[in-house]
Design a protein around this nucleic acid. Structure first.
Lengths: 232, 232
DNA sequence: CGTTTGGTTGATAGGAATCAACTTCAGTGG
DNA sequence: CCACTGAAGTTGATTCCTATCAACCAAACG
C-alpha cells in the first residue's frame, strides 16, 4: 500500500481520530485492491466480511428483488461503505459494483470490530459516520416519496452544480442509465425529463450539462435543505 | 418515573449493557411525559434536543416537502427514535406525531452524548441500535423502489401476520390513512388494493383482516428476506 | 339527531413503464 | 480504411399504475 493511500485513509473522518497503533494494525490487516469497471464487489445476501473504503473510482450500491434492480447510492472517493452490515456481522442488504476502475481498501470485519472495541475515539468516529449514512438514506427516502421524478432530476442537477463549483456547467460522473436508476426512473424517462427541463435552461451534450436559467430551475425544483443539503 | 417503566427502559437493548451508575444518571436527567393522540412531538428542521424513547403508544415519523407529507416509519414501543440526529447534534430530518396516547421518555441530548463518551458498553449498544435503524431505512427504500404499491401492501400484511402470531388474522395497529401513507400510496388506492387482494384471500372488516389464502398471497407478494425480515 | 371523521367507490387525468424503432458513436476486425 | 457490431441514448406509441376529483356511505360523537 502506498504512503499517500495510507494518508488518504488516515485523513478520512472515520480514521482520523484513531490511535496510531490501532490504525497501523488495521492497515496491516487490510488489502488494497484494484478492480475493473462493472465488477460486482458485493452480492446482497452474502455475509459482510470486509469494510470497504473507496480510494479511487466509483461504486454503485444497488438492490434487487423479483428480477428488478435499482441503484440506491453511488459512492465517490474517499468514502466507506457497508459499515452497518460489518458492525452487525450481518448479511449485505445491498449489492455493489464498480462503475469505473476503482481501488478499494478491504478491512476484515473482525479487525474492524476489534479496533472499535479497543479504541473509543474510533468508536466515536464510526458512530458519526454511521449517523451520516443513516441520514443520507432518510433523505433519499424522502426524495423518493415526496417528489416526482422530474423534481428529483432538477434537484440532482442543482446539487451537482453546487458541488462542481456553481458554474452553471456540470459533468455527469455516471452514465445516464445509472443516473436514471438512481433517481428512480427509466432511461427513457430520464431522457424525456431532460427535454422537459430544456424549458428551464437545461441543455445536454452527452455527459456535459449547462444550466442557463438557474432561477427557473430553482423555482421548479424547490430544493429543500432537509433533503438536498449534504451538510445536514 | 415508575419502577416498571425504568425496568422497561433498562430492558431495551440500547440500555441493557450500560453501567448501572451511568444508567441511573441518565434516568435522573430524563423526563417521562404522556402525550395525547395526534400531537406533534417533533418538527423537522428543529434541533434535536432529546432522544425519544417510546414507552407506550404509537408514534409516526413523517416527512414533508412542498406541502406534501408522507409517513416514513411507525414506531411501536419499546423503541428509541431520532438517535442519529441527537448523536450528530443536528436538526431533525423527520417530524413526529403521536398516533395514540403515548408515553415517551425524553433524554436530553447532552446527557446522552456524555454517557456515550464515558461508557463503552453503551456506545456499543448505540452503535448496534443505529445500525439496525440504518438497515431498516435501507429496506424501506428498497421496498419503495423495487415494488409496486400492491406488492408493498401484500408484504405488509404477510409481515404483520407473522408478527401477530401467524393465525391468518391480523389487526391493523394504525388507521388506513396512515397505512396508505406509510406504504407510499393514497387512501383511495389502499382501499382498491384491498379489494384487489380479495382474490388472494384477503378480507377486511374495519381494522380486522383475515388472510385465508396465504399461499396465494405469498405467491403475489414474493417476500424477500432482505426487505421484509426484521431479523436482517 | 345532525355532523364529523374515516373509509369506499367511480370517473378521469397524469405520471411513469413498457415496447419498439431508430440514431449515434466507439470499438472491432476484415 | 471502412463495414460491422454493440452499447448508449433518444423518440414515439401504448399500456399500466397511481393520483386526483367527486360523490357517497357508515359508524362515531356531541
Amino acid at each position: 500500500m502506498r504512503i499517500d493511500d495510507i494518508e488518504l485513509v488516515r485523513g478520512l473522518s472515520l480514521f482520523a481520530e484513531m490511535e496510531q497503533q490501532n490504525f497501523d494494525a488495521l492497515m496491516h490487516a487490510a488489502y488494497l485492491q484494484q478492480f475493473p469497471p462493472q465488477l460486482q464487489l458485493i452480492n446482497e445476501g452474502d455475509p459482510a466480511d470486509f469494510l470497504h473504503v473507496l480510494i479511487e473510482g466509483r461504486v454503485e450500491l444497488f438492490g434487487t428483488a423479483k428480477g428488478r434492480e435499482s441503484a440506491l447510492f453511488v459512492m465517490h472517493p474517499p468514502s466507506t461503505f457497508i459499515l452497518a452490515a460489518v458492525l452487525k456481522d450481518a448479511v449485505h442488504l445491498m449489492s455493489a459494483r464498480t462503475l469505473a476502475t476503482s481501488r478499494v481498501l478491504l478491512i476484515p470485519a473482525s479487525n474492524l470490530r476489534q479496533a472499535f472495541k479497543s479504541d473509543a475515539a474510533f468508536a466515536h468516529s464510526i458512530l458519526l459516520d454511521l449517523a451520516d449514512s443513516y441520514r443520507g438514506v432518510v433523505k433519499t427516502l424522502k426524495g423518493q416519496k415526496l417528489r416526482t421524478s422530474l423534481e428529483r432530476l432538477a434537484n440532482y442537477l442543482l446539487l451537482q452544480n453546487d458541488i462542481q463549483g456553481a458554474m452553471g456547467r456540470i459533468d455527469l460522473a455516471i452514465d445516464k442509465k445509472t443516473l436514471a436508476s438512481l433517481l428512480g426512473m427509466t432511461p427513457e424517462n430520464l431522457s424525456r425529463g431532460f427535454s422537459t427541463l430544456s424549458a428551464y435552461g437545461v441543455s445536454v451534450d452527452g455527459p456535459r450539462i449547462t444550466l442557463s436559467k438557474l432561477e427557473d430551475l430553482h423555482q421548479l425544483a424547490k430544493p429543500d435543505s432537509l433533503i438536498d443539503d449534504p451538510a445536514n
